[in-house]
């Protein structure tokens, strides 16, 4: 697997994505209020917070699925106006979902191959014939997908329809599909929800490997505080749509506001 491009000369440690004063509401319900933080190139950034804190909404804003009423988002130094999700994808933002959003009728291979869509360009004519350039392209991308399959250790299920897979494996296939996009920024929405300890360990290993080997920047939502503390470089904490803390795992875990948010304030 190749390392993703370095993206307009952004070096490790520079700001890759900046969220600045973002507010989002549905009708009268405020999901996010004036949140600012940044994600630096090459880091694992965790977003944590109690249920309903606006974490998933934040990811939805980042990849263009929701449009915030206020605030700015800067990705790779460019400020974004309203953009469609596929534009975010073509700029290099990939995503996994809280409730697995795989293509249930397709096999593991086809799911991951679908992640290569943006990289495949052979035209309709060759697609009709499935020979010549179209077939060459297909084989070339299949090779790439097989590397991902090896990396995630899911060789045995490559031809199984994903609807039939157990939950843990589905999560893994979903990670594979996101990796197939060779993203610069990978958004993971609770990648370990509902997993047992062993599966969590596997998934943690994959996340760290992706980050180390390919330098992919990762933004991660997770409820398991242990995992967050071990994996992430920096943590941002949301509560009721507001940012209440931001810093290294050690700083955050000793922050009084965070402790109150998780354990409740004595009345």
């Amino acid at each position: 697997m190749r390392a993703p491009g370095d993206g307009h000369g952004i070096m490790a440690g520079d700001v890759l994505l900046a969220v600045d004063g973002v507010s989002l509401s549905f009708g009268g319900v405020k999901a996010i209020t004036d949140v600012s933080f940044d994600i630096r190139k090459g880091e694992i950034r965790a977003i944590i917070g109690p249920n309903g804190a606006g974490k998933t909404s934040m990811l939805n804003v980042i990849n263009g699925f929701y449009h915030p009423q206020k605030g700015r988002i800067t990705f790779k130094g460019e400020m974004r106006r309203r953009m469609r999700p596929y534009e975010a994808a073509s700029q290099g933002i990939a995503r996994t979902f809280q409730n697995v959003a795989l293509f249930k009728g397709m096999s593991t291979i086809d799911n991951i191959m679908a992640g290569r869509t943006l990289k495949m360009h052979e035209n309709f004519f060759w697609q009709c014939l499935r020979h010549g350039p179209a077939m060459r392209e297909e084989v070339e991308h299949r090779r790439f997908v097989e590397e991902i399959i090896d990396f995630l250790e899911i060789q045995a299920i490559r031809k199984t329809p994903v609807g039939k897979l157990p939950y843990g494996l589905q999560k893994r296939v979903e990670l594979g599909r996101a990796l197939a996009m060779e993203p610069e920024l990978l958004l993971l929405d609770e990648p370990m929800a509902g997993m047992n300890l062993e599966e969590k360990e596997d998934m943690s290993r994959f996340i760290v490997d992706v980050n180390n080997q390919y330098g992919t920047t990762i933004a991660l939502i997770e409820h398991d505080i242990g995992v967050v503390m071990d994996l992430s470089d920096r943590v941002v904490v949301l509560e009721y749509g507001r940012k209440i803390a931001d810093g290294s795992p050690a700083e955050v875990s000793s922050d009084q506001a965070v402790i109150d948010a998780y354990l409740g304030v004595p009345h």
């Binding site: 073509s90 979902f97 009728g105 679908a114 869509t117 697609q127």
Partner: peptide, 22 residues
């Protein structure tokens, strides 16, 4: 091929398909 996978992706989960650049 690519086109068929895009069709099925839209069928199975259109939101995810769009977030993948389809």
């Amino acid at each position: 091929g690519r086109i068929g996978r895009a069709w099925m992706a839209v069928r199975d989960m259109d939101i995810a398909a769009e977030l993948m650049g389809i």
